[in-house]
Design a protein around this nucleic acid. Structure first.
Lengths: 138, 138
DNA sequence: GTGCGTGCAAACGGTTTGCATGCTT
DNA sequence: AAGCATGCAAACCGTTTGCACGCAC
């Protein structure tokens, strides 16, 4: 968390109570919550916190590379504070998002034809499927 | 295109002028257009076509597996009529989406730990970066 | 003729923004 | 003291929906 404060100061962003709690809540959550979900959870600690602040904070944090916005297929954007290299597995039924590592993929080289395209910055794998629990109840 | 008609009939969907043109336009386009982009292009051929129809048609086509909705990081959903297995490379600057094949990836096995998660249906790779043109102009 | 598909307009919902106030620095 | 961050409310904008008419079947 100290590291977070440092990174935050380094980016010229002020440390506020709301920001700290938003980040803390996101870091604790393992379900890649949407802004609204975070808002509901945080209201217990900070009853006056507004949804706008959640949006603005998530947006700042993302711009400074402290968190990631996940591409799910849903309307609501979902966020992830885990900055270690990992990928996502999405249940298209219950919308649960699971993290997983795939080192073999991370080590692999993208196709040679992309060499001259430009500068590659990031590579994401998203697997879609139906989780065990949802399969049973269908 | 005949194949498309067949698939459409098989799904119990009526063949209408609008639907045919929407699909034709999407199949011709190589830039993964958004609904609004398609709408603009189609207005030259069918001046009265409405944006709602584009949305409804894209949605039907996607539900029946005839086209794919692409996860970009933008607000607007973008679509792809190419059903061959391929992946996407996104320029985060100009939003261009490029198709590419990655057979080595397609042949690879996902991590063993996912074996018992459920039923995997689909795997997408999205590479992000800055294309050559955008790099120059920065 | 039946009922799905279309166009129109209005609603929806997640996200963004303008503004006055408050708090970090 | 200066200016970014917050809360409120309103705007935004891509997408969805209700309804009446029209067209594919």
């Amino acid at each position: 968390m100290d590291e977070f404060e440092k990174a935050f100061r380094a980016s010229g962003l002020k440390i506020t109570h709301q920001r700290m709690e938003i980040y803390r809540e996101l870091a604790r959550a393992k379900d890649h919550p949407a802004a609204e979900t975070l808002h509901k959870r945080l209201q217990q600690k900070i009853p006056t916190i507004s949804l706008d602040t959640i949006y603005r904070t998530l947006s700042s944090l993302e711009q400074h590379g402290l968190i990631c916005r996940i591409n799910s297929r849903e309307k609501q954007a979902r966020y992830d504070a885990d900055r270690r290299r990992h990928h996502h597995l999405v249940c298209t039924q219950c919308k649960q998002i699971l993290d997983f590592q795939w080192e073999a993929f991370d080590r692999s080289e993208p196709p040679a034809e992309l060499k001259h395209w430009g500068r590659l910055l990031r590579r994401d794998v998203i697997l879609y499927g139906i989780c065990g629990k949802c399969s049973e109840s269908m």
